[in-house]
Amino acid sequence: MPDSEDKTDLAASFRQTRRELWVMLAAWIVFAAWTIGYNATHAFTEEASLPDPVLGMPRWITFGIFTPWMVAVVLTTWFAMRFMKDTPLHDGAPETEAEREGK
């Protein structure tokens, strides 16, 4: 059982983790909207089936998948290195019966 100082730390780290969760979910919605929205309007057209490559790929792949993928890598880097915070992981209970019995 954590003591009261640990409990306060744990509550603070929980709130920080929850903030990170909301940002992550928002990012998922943005990228889902980009790829699904763009491709729904560009991937099924007659132009999509014509040989008109951009960077060697069909145009809808370049702008609907490849570009957001590159942006997502940049965003993930920012999220991990700037937005996420280091928090203590709180080692707690013993992991085996023997440890619990003090053997």
């Binding site: 990012a27 998922w28 792949i61 993930t76």
Partner: peptide
């Protein structure tokens, strides 16, 4: 490419979650 496209954000979502 579209079918697998969700992987673009997997490292952030799967680990962030």
């Amino acid at each position: 490419a579209w079918w697998i496209g969700g992987y673009m954000i997997v490292p952030m979502v799967a680990l962030g979650l």
